[in-house]
Design a binder for these strands. Sequence first.
DNA 1: CTGAAAGCGCTTACAG
DNA 2: CTGAAAGCGCTTACAG
Lengths: 333, 333
Amino acid sequence: MSGERVPTANMAMVARVAGVSRATVSNVLNHPDRVHPDTVAAVNAAIHQLKFVRNGLARTLAAGHANNIGIIVSGFDHSYSSEIIVSAQDKAIEAGMHVVITCSNHDIALQDDHLRYLHGEGVAAVILVPMPNSDASISRAIGRGTRLILIDYDGEPLNCSSVRIDNIATGRLAATYLLESGKSRLHFVGPDGDRVVIRDRCRGVTEAVGFAGMSVSTVQGLSREAATAQGREIASLARDGLIDGVIAATDIIGMGVIFGLKEIGLKVPEDVAVVGCDYNAFAWRGDVTLTSVDLLSETVGATAMQLALDQVKGRVQAPCNIVLQPRLVIRGS
Amino acid sequence: MSGERVPTANMAMVARVAGVSRATVSNVLNHPDRVHPDTVAAVNAAIHQLKFVRNGLARTLAAGHANNIGIIVSGFDHSYSSEIIVSAQDKAIEAGMHVVITCSNHDIALQDDHLRYLHGEGVAAVILVPMPNSDASISRAIGRGTRLILIDYDGEPLNCSSVRIDNIATGRLAATYLLESGKSRLHFVGPDGDRVVIRDRCRGVTEAVGFAGMSVSTVQGLSREAATAQGREIASLARDGLIDGVIAATDIIGMGVIFGLKEIGLKVPEDVAVVGCDYNAFAWRGDVTLTSVDLLSETVGATAMQLALDQVKGRVQAPCNIVLQPRLVIRGS
DNA sequence: CTGAAAGCGCTTACAG
DNA sequence: CTGAAAGCGCTTACAG
């Protein structure tokens, strides 16, 4: 157990080489305008020569504020997560902040752990895409004083900023499109369980159609295999003329349905039209491209980061809850 | 600019509440066995009462070693990244370490930035899945003293531990399988550019087949759209009887080819068999599932983390370079 | 078993 | 414009 770090250059060494005090080195790094140009040059030369990289831990500790923001996601199996991360990071970089990501791997205990960990590491704020039913964990984080921004949070109202998509509107948008395309016997298919997101999408469909006009079925889980299997079931309903439009709660399911329909020779969208609800880049692209509802991942990520930055910079105190309206993207299904 | 942190409990407060010194609180946290059980209980009660979370920055700074390991990936658009992260994190957690992820978004400057940043944050080690042509950036990190583990690095030999898949074997495996399935007119299709990974896979195919027995084509980029378009081109070659087996450098391309073939009524794998080379869970399993070469992402991630931990714990000094042999997974194509 | 003291590498008023 | 000094929140020998 001797994994000592190779002795790295620190500010004291830079100061010595440059012939100045540590305070001056610090000033060159943080407020170069307050330092004589010649001194700046000398210090920078020393920094360069010693390959000095400032210790960010000590910096944060001494300065009392961090220059990084944490993002916790539960997994990368949906393109939504990655898209949020990328757009959030872009915004953070503009503001001179770093982003560290943490993955809870769909494990609520791990999510809790990451929340504690990032708090302990003193990140300036945490953006969380919370797992369902993690209210307790979230409240604890807020209680601890973590600056938290919630994405697509669907639990009890919390004293915390958030950004989310209107999932009822998502379902309504999908259903309305099918109705306007002349379809009338709609079917909603979503994963089992009682996730609010899915329930909302279903509710949106119901609002647009009315209970009488629709049927509903369920897929076990979120896998492609299960989606394809259920697609075959739905195809048989379609063959019997019971269905002419399908709203799939997820794009993966939507593609499964399309494969099921085509397998028995039904034409998409002529015989049966299919709309997905989560614009998943990992789902598109069979020979038929899936029409879906854009959940504006990029806007969501950028907005969440903006809220985080506003809080960090002290520009805003009160929590701010933003609800975004989704957008239908018509493609080939 | 007044985004001050809410005053959080620190060790001094815990010590006061528990009626002990800060050193004792620290001992309760780090070496509970050295402390009287009653004292431990009192301190823990205070910790609980104050919702104290130890400042990890200060801990790392004072202790001289971190309890976290960074992973830098260039994106999450391939399931390989996520799988590596998950398995690496599992191994880290076993060892009581935390994992922070950073995404360079396919930007070599950003990758360099993350490398510097993580070094500055003092992470115990960094696992990097490097972008092509980032040797300079990597050497700099090593020079700085960062403990670096490279995954699938294909540049100049470096004084640094690494894990990689044998990509020549990947191509050979795919081609050999097709030959043994009775196919003889093989075609290799990969993305343009001169990535070593792709060249190696092609070389593996060549080794198995000989130049005379194969043709080669190229896709612009890695998108599904381009893959599908090229799939149509390849399908026309197949229709003319010039091809009866396709090795696709990526699974996304493989699926594009399958869609192209089926569009003109060719049967997969009877008329033309298709094998992918990167076992991408995001390549949609259509009605035909893609036979592919498993790049053992989980082993790669776990092994990389093991190498990192060994170094951190001081169990190993010399760099260790591991080459893993891929494994063919026969599915429906 | 417990605590006083020094120190990790930096920043930030405050003098000069 | 520059530096001496205190302090960020913790850990670690070292006494006791």
